[in-house]
Amino acid sequence: MRVRELTGLRPWIFPLCLLLGSLFFGAVAAYKAPNLFSGPVIVAMLAVSVSRATPLVYGSLSGIFCERSGVTQIAIEGMMLTAAFFAFAVQVATHNIFIALGGAMLAGALMGAFHAVLSITFQVNQIISGTVVNILSIGLTGYLNRQLFLFDQAIDVTVFPQLPVPVLADLPWLGRILFSHQPLTYVALLLPLMAHVWLFHTTWGLRTRAVGEHPLAADTAGINVYSIRYLNVIVGGALAGLGGAYFTLESIPTFQPLMTNGRGFIALAAMIFGKWTPLGAWGGALLFGVAEALPVTLQIQGVTVNYFLVGLLPYVLTIIVLAGAVGRASPPAAIGLPYDRR
């Protein structure tokens, strides 16, 4: 019961996922590479999973901030891509990775503000507004990348170093899985807990839930629906921006067009998987992280399963989740509806 209250998930979903995962893993292992079942390989895979889950965590929290206040957020992908580019561009310009991180958050927040103006003030259909952001980001980053960096060979940029946590990193198993990562990944491990406290135990969080469920009732209680929604969508943009920074400040120190590769939509699926709760979305992000780490692990282990076929796993999982396999999705009641008081 407690699990369900905290994450919105049925408690049996976690053992079920574990069981299915190990069945699949076991089948592949028995069939192709017995090595795959060994401890170190599994630990390595889980460590990669946690890292791969990082942008999904930020993305799904971005979705929660926006959608809990009643604004549809399908623009996570576009906000991430824009932020990934500006993180790279700012680092090239300033050679300072922290300013680059700020640039990524700012770029995400600005895209969030754009989405907010369109959908809250001008009451544009929020799916269309989100699509505008997604398409704009592809064009904008593609164009600027071509103009600024295509022929520039001597770009000197870096990624955040691995920072093993003293003592904890030496723990068997867990040390490798949780405590030997880059900074954005550590923050992604803590942020869902903070978001949980924010949503359910602070004034801002309570008002967010009220505004997303029944804006008129919130308004009559003296809450400014518009400012809560603006604030949440802009903060949501900044969170997506942190997710975007993962690609160019943690993963690889360069920008490639379309490099977010659908992760924004997978983050959306993780949010729905977690029924719009931070802790549930975290579980979803980790599950998708495993799905992304699996093909990498198989490849490293020399298993000759078609890489592209296994690489489809996260996307297939997304379809299954979005098709409602996790039980009835219960989005905030006022989602997608502009608030208009006359």
Binding site: A210, H214, A217
Partner: peptide, 10 residues
Amino acid sequence: HQHFMLIPTL
């Protein structure tokens, strides 16, 4: 209010 200005999920 005439109609409940209350939020069912809270």
